[in-house]
Design a protein around this nucleic acid. Structure first.
Length: 496
RNA sequence: GGCGACGUACCCAAGUGGUUAAGGGAAGGGUCUGCAAAACCCUCAUUCACCGGUUCGAAUCCGGUCGUCGCCUCCA
């Protein structure tokens, strides 16, 4: 069994992931709150978890991957202490963009669909389960009742709170073990005088005015932000999970609170390995919703950028390093994705359609051995705390080895196919799998026929050495976004 | 106030004790081509912010200086 090493926030070391069942990884990754379109920073995190799955599968592991959607509008300051801010979703509904929605439920549904759409376009693997907070209300209420019963939570006139002092190890993940520092950390949060400790966090908030509310043993209200992940992780993965991840901001308080709730409830370790993704920066600066200096995935795709190039750009720097995303990075990525596609086109010319799906393993000939070695180096880089920079360099190295061969033999093409198929499975950046939305596919059919007519026309002109006409046609097509390439086997075209 | 990251060529960036400091972009030259495009080939850091130290040996370890940035609050 091969080792898959990843930095673990809890032990603060890079260590091999251990799975409770051999070869079966149980992984929970915190998803977004759906009150707006997801931005590229969100996706740096989700892409990182996607790479964990791909890497695990590349060494033959089964992965049960749970990634939730938070569709309850939690309070904006319900983090360390309790609630006092506005509801995120209510805020979104009240904003200009919110006018199109009848209510918060409608809004959550809309952005959840948009999110899954972006997810597919960036070629992320579909989770085994994608649970929603609103669909697990009963379980959350039961969990809160259980914590009260076990003496870890108590009711006040404003809600139900988890007693931080009842859980010795509170703070072990984030290092916020020093109660004095905790006081500093919670300084700006509005306090509830009925709480036993200002750091106690909400499990249930009483509020019969809230836009989303449920009936509970404590009256009308809604659940605290942290309890949903504890409940859903346990429901789908069991009391102890192998790996849990999310953005670096979730370390404290969110994951700290998840640990406290879960372990206080079950008496068992909640999770053996924690990973956190460092925030993405844009043009050298932190991006955030409140600053408004962010790109959504949609923004960039609407500007015509290739979704796979966006994926490439977002994973090109290892996840624990600060990554300064720029438009230039994205443009650089486009060229490289195009190189994978070019290699794919050459292979398809020999093996025909379906070559990627039917690609086999490496052979024993020289090219097969060379590509096999390069792929192994890339895989090893991924197994060493997801070194995507090296893995991508290896993907390009192998692709160049394929492109270097001016005339591929059938055996060469098969080796190349094996390489590209493995790279695609591991990194998802070759652009050889269509991620376009289905409705966009109808039009190119007709368009393609029109282009073919012009290409034939131009070939005629070229044959007659009428270069004025042939160049005119090429220029017109270029202006229309169609790029022509004359190859020994004839003219091929691609959309730019 | 607490915690942490980073500073490598024009740009992005890997490398964290030892042969030639990955890879990509840009730039320059070349092959191919009617010309292009694409692809391929070649060139492009004796040097890793700065100053000391440890060591046979450091971009890599230690100390200091300067600079940039992030998390702890909404946010992945």
């Amino acid at each position: 069994m091969r080792e898959f090493k990843l930095y673990d926030t809890l032990s603060r070391t890079v260590k091999p992931i251990t799975t409770s069942e051999p070869g079966h990884l149980k992984f929970y990754s915190c998803g977004p709150t759906v009150y707006s379109y997801a931005h590229i920073g969100n996706f740096r995190t989700f892409l990182t978890t996607d790479l964990v799955i791909r890497t695990a599968e590349a060494i033959g592991w089964d992965v049960t991957y749970v990634s939730n959607i938070t569709d309850v509008g939690h309070l904006t300051q319900d983090d360390v202490a309790d609630a006092a801010g506005d509801d995120k979703m209510a805020k979104a509904l009240a904003s200009k963009e919110g006018d199109q929605f009848a209510n918060v439920w409608d809004l959550a549904r809309f952005y959840a669909v948009a999110f899954e759409d972006d997810w597919k376009r960036l070629n992320l693997k579909t989770p085994t389960v994608r649970p929603r907070a609103t669909e697990h209300m009963r379980e959350q209420i039961v969990a809160v009742e259980d914590l009260i019963k076990k003496g870890h939570a108590y009711e006040t006139p404003t809600g139900v709170y988890f007693s931080v002092d009842s859980f010795e190890e509170y703070g072990k993940l984030s290092g916020n073990t020093d109660r004095e520092n905790l006081q500093v950390a919670v300084r700006d949060v509005v306090q509830d005088d009925n709480k036993k400790n200002p750091a106690d966090f909400a499990l249930w908030k009483k509020d019969d005015k809230h836009l989303m509310q449920w009936f509970s043993p404590w009256g009308w209200g809604f659940p605290g932000w942290h309890i949903e992940c504890s409940v859903m992780a346990q429901k789908y993965l069991g009391d102890t999970i192998d790996l849990h991840g999310g953005g670096e901001d979730l370390k404290f308080p969110h994951h700290e609170c998840e640990i406290a709730q879960s372990e206080a409830g079950t008496g068992k370790p909640f999770c053996n390995h924690w990973m956190h993704v460092t925030f993405l920066q844009v043009e050298g600066e932190k991006m955030s919703k409140s600053k408004g200096n962010f790109f959504t995935v949609r923004d960039l795709l609407e500007q015509g950028f290739d979704p796979i190039a966006l994926r490439y750009a977002l994973i090109s720097v290892p996840y624990r390093k600060p990554h300064n995303f720029t438009i230039q990075t994205l443009k650089d990525a486009e060229g490289n994705v195009e190189r994978f596609r070019e290699a794919g086109r050459r292979i398809e010319a020999i093996l025909g359609e379906g070559w990627l799906e039917s690609a086999g393993d490496f052979g024993s000939d020289q090219l097969g051995q060379e590509l096999s070695g390069i792929y192994e180096q890339g895989l090893n880089a991924m197994l060493d705390d997801l070194n995507t920079s090296v893995a991508i360099a290896k993907a390009l190295e192998g692709t160049k080895a394929i492109l270097r061969i001016s005339s591929l033999s059938e055996s060469d093409a098969k080796e190349g196919a094996a390489f590209l198929a493995k790279v695609e499975a591991l990194l998802g950046i070759t652009g050889l799998i269509a991620t376009q939305e289905p409705e966009e596919e109808a039009e190119p059919e007709i368009e393609g026929k029109l282009v073919s007519v012009w290409v034939t026309e131009r070939d005629e002109a070229k044959k007659n050495k009428d270069y004025a006409t042939s160049d005119l046609i090429r220029n017109k097509l270029t202006a229309a976004g169609i790029e022509l390439r004359d190859t020994p086997d004839g003219t091929v075209w691609a959309k730019r």
